[in-house]
Design a protein around this nucleic acid. Structure first.
Lengths: 125, 125
DNA sequence: ACGCATTAATTGCTTGTGCATTGAATGCAT
DNA sequence: ATGCATTCAATGCACAAGCAATTAATGCGT
């Protein structure tokens, strides 16, 4: 792959990313009052990946899932918690850590938003 | 393409984007004191696309090129101008607008950074 | 048992971004 | 010529993200 091709591919990636993120941001925010990162976190949690043996999700793991820094995730979780979509609980076996879990309300919010999310992706991929 | 495939593709896109942007940000900032968006703008200008007949580049056009809002571009141009990499000049035929042009220093900065940029892309694509 | 490096998460601070607004210039219709 | 909607760029404002420092808990070595 020569330089020109690489740059072309990169720009295509940038363009596609920008288009989709922008569309998702708009739709998710307007219809469900959720940001893209917020939905992505709810989505991972609803799926159950990143689940720790204890039954909750560790902030660190979620951060890696959605490609955010741990500080960004910490605040994102705080926002979700303020809206009642997740709860933080102490984890017994390592009291430095926190378990984050979906509330029923969070599960509902995700279930409502998922079709919108899929629809936007479907349209653009 | 079913839902699962779409989501898989989307996550792959997100992951790739995150990885590359992160790597670029680090390398460009450390070695050339440039952000990714800043470089992208310099790159487009050095290429000469988005060039207006007047000889400069309009803010609006550059904004579309790099997928940023008009206001973000305005401030980005201001940063580049502060560093002496571009200059703003009045455009005669439409005095609402401005022409942005690369300075020799800006051209040099781009020429220095481009290999780094290409190298990172090459490694990840 | 004690210190010390390490790890988890939060918080202070700075910066970049988008939306909405503003100010200036344009051009079109009357 | 005058008014009015439109367009270009800049700015006020709010907010999300990263880095660095902080706090708390863990565990490893001696």
């Amino acid at each position: 792959m020569n330089d020109t091709d690489v740059v072309t591919a990169w720009r295509q990636l940038l363009a596609q990313h920008a288009t989709i993120v922008c569309a998702l941001e708009r739709e998710l925010h307007d219809k469900h009052d959720l940001g893209v990162s917020e939905f992505e976190v709810l989505d991972r949690m609803a799926e159950g990946v990143c689940r720790s043996p204890g039954g909750g999700f560790r902030v660190q793991e979620l951060a890696e899932c959605v490609h955010l820094s741990q500080s960004a995730l910490s605040r994102l979780i705080a926002r979700l918690e303020k809206d009642g979509l997740v709860v933080r609980s102490l984890c017994e076996d390592d009291r430095r850590g926190v378990y984050v879990s979906l509330t029923p309300k969070g599960r509902d919010a995700h279930a409502e938003a998922q079709p919108t999310h899929r629809a936007v992706l479907g349209k653009h991929l």
